[in-house]
Design a protein around this nucleic acid. Structure first.
Lengths: 348, 348
DNA sequence: GATTAGCACTCGAAGTGAGTGAGTGCTAAC
DNA sequence: GTTAGCACTCACTCACTTCGAGTGCTAATC
């Protein structure tokens, strides 16, 4: 059977009505609400065809029709028109993202919050993966006679440090030398690679440095690197699902929240997703628990290198056009923000 | 009317049964389940008295009795016996808290997780307030020709740093001097006090330092101090409430989760609570939204100075004896963990 | 031949009302 | 003071009815 122009119009109308109302759509309602120029009976025939083709389903005999995952996929791929944000919406996004310019994590966290507020869905934002991030600078700073601070600066300017209690006394020159040495050895290397290496072997020639490293510094160095590579996941709008009819059921709400409760698993799923604006609908999601959810994610860039993700999750019945536009605009803004920062740095 | 020995016994039995079953307790059930040596009729009379005295309530005429907030308060203050944890439980707690020794935030986060797992309630843990925390060391480190790192070390060893882009070129000596100067001026001062001061005025004598500070360093210095003073709140077991009959209602579950969604507000509430093990029952909670919740919090100490809080929140019907014991044991362990770290430091 | 009106049929949702049982309060006997 | 007995209450369950939105089929119409 062929998807005629008229079938497409009807399908679009059904999707539009169902997305708004969350109620199965009947033929009479449809003919009243939309100016399709055909009678309910004709619509019924077409609906029956659409159901046969897999675009509609039936909760029960005497109920209206509901779009299937396949219908949403068709809509997202072919039917959906670009939704233009109003100036007010654009301004809101731009303004709310400003004012956090200096604090990366804060900006990300706030972006998630903003996204959930605008979409009324549950949102999440992941800090960038740092697979390409290289080391730039390592320092060991004396604080008191047994305490030194290990400081690691990455190429993108991220700094991390740890206070170390040394088990042996140190000399300031020894420390300085060791730090210089480490910087020399690791500068420009990717952090992920350094983690895999046998660090100690780099210092075989210098017995003193080696023992110092092995005994005191190595474990913290590795740990700190790992920490720097870790991604964080922020979520917002968790309670929004209570306002969504699909989750007007305790077990469903529970399942949904349980899904998000396991942040590690969820992060893993996000990492596996492709870059760019990605929409996965219902069964397209690998996870069983997400078979009646849709997820829209987008990637943002920092310095054109590191890649983070931001997105929303909700029922398959969502305003795909609006939400993709919002996420697109939001990530554009994020990219600008993080590029802006970089360019200011270079400018000066 | 007087609270006779027998009335207390009956009340205790009612509380015990209700806490277990979440069902209003009737006189007949009570006489069957507990060996009180009196007939249901007598129990009814006593129950009626207890209701008059405000210890019991009645959902409706033909239902059993439910303990009131006042009853729980009496129970917690006078009736409750110390609940001894089993060795298995103690071991579980001790073991699960180990293995995070080096990472403070991680330990706290994990303690919250552990607490929610053991109690099947929603738990939270707040990192310590640092009102007493003093500054120890300030450094300015050159990274490249326009970038320096501002590094602040607090008395307890917490380090924080920020990369600064200077608008004017610097000399290495100038920076070093300024850092030494700042350390000298602020060393030993409480961070909260420093934030209130007019920092610039300390450097009136040195015009160059002053302009450098004012233009480039001050804002970041203040911001970083504020960040260091901030407390973090971790929560866990949010979805546990779905297993609690009291929240078998969407609006109630929603209210509960909304309450916890506003982390800032919740943190504020925690900060206002007194130290030690504190139990607040139902109406005793200032917040309207918490009138049918009870909250148990305890304080833990780091280095005997900084004070953080950890606790659970759930329905007023909870096992007060068990939970207070668990929290007590948990905070004892936390205190040990954080004291241990300190003592190792001193030892060496 | 496509479209439409008409009509029987389906099925969930909401409402009704009897029956059930756990509970109370009162009274009178022990 | 305690208890047995009894009438009464009230939420809960469940079968039953009604209602209405919706379908699918058929026959008439354009």
């Amino acid at each position: 059977m062929e998807l005629t122009e008229r079938k497409l119009r009807i399908l679009q109308a059904i999707i539009s009505d169902y997305v708004r109302s969350a109620e199965p759509v009947g033929s009479r309602t449809l003919s009243k609400r939309f100016d399709l120029g055909i009678s309910p009976a004709t619509i019924r025939n077409e609906m029956s065809d659409l159901e046969e083709m897999g675009y509609l389903t039936h909760p029960h005999t005497s109920a209206g029709r509901v779009p299937s995952d396949k219908a949403y996929r068709l809509y997202v791929n072919d039917l959906m028109e670009k939704h233009e944000l109003s100036i007010a919406e654009k301004n809101l996004i731009a303004e709310r993202l400003r004012g956090h310019v200096n604090e990366f994590e804060d900006t990300i966290k706030h972006a998630a919050k903003l996204l959930s507020e605008i979409t009324n869905l549950t949102s999440f934002a992941m800090t960038p993966t740092k697979n390409e991030e290289t080391l730039r600078f390592i320092n060991l700073l004396p604080v008191d006679d047994r305490t030194v601070v290990l400081m690691i600066v990455s190429e993108s300017g991220k700094i991390s440090n740890t206070a170390l209690k040394l088990r042996v006394p140190y000399t300031e020159e020894g420390l300085q030398l060791l730090a210089k040495n480490m910087t020399y050895k690791f500068n420009g290397k990717r952090m992920t690679d350094v983690l895999k290496e046998n660090i100690i072997s780099h210092f075989e020639s210098d017995i003193a440095a080696m023992s110092m490293l092995e005994e005191n510094i190595m474990p913290s160095f590795m740990k700190t690197l790992e920490d720097m590579l870790n991604v964080n996941l922020y979520m917002d709008g968790l309670t929004n699902i209570f306002d969504i009819p699909e989750y007007n059921d305790l077990t469903k709400a529970k399942n949904f929240l349980s899904l998000l409760d396991k942040k590690e698993d969820f992060t893993k799923k996000l990492l596996e997703r492709e870059d760019g604006i990605i929409v996965t609908i219902g069964d397209e999601n690998a996870d069983d628990m997400m078979h009646d959810c849709s997820m829209i994610t987008a990637t943002y860039h920092v310095d054109g290198k590191m890649v983070g993700k931001i997105g929303v999750i909700g029922p398959t019945r969502m305003k795909y056009d609006e939400i993709t536009s919002i996420i697109e605009y939001l990530t554009d803004n994020l990219n600008d923000t993080f590029r802006l920062e970089a360019s200011i740095n270079e400018e000066e």
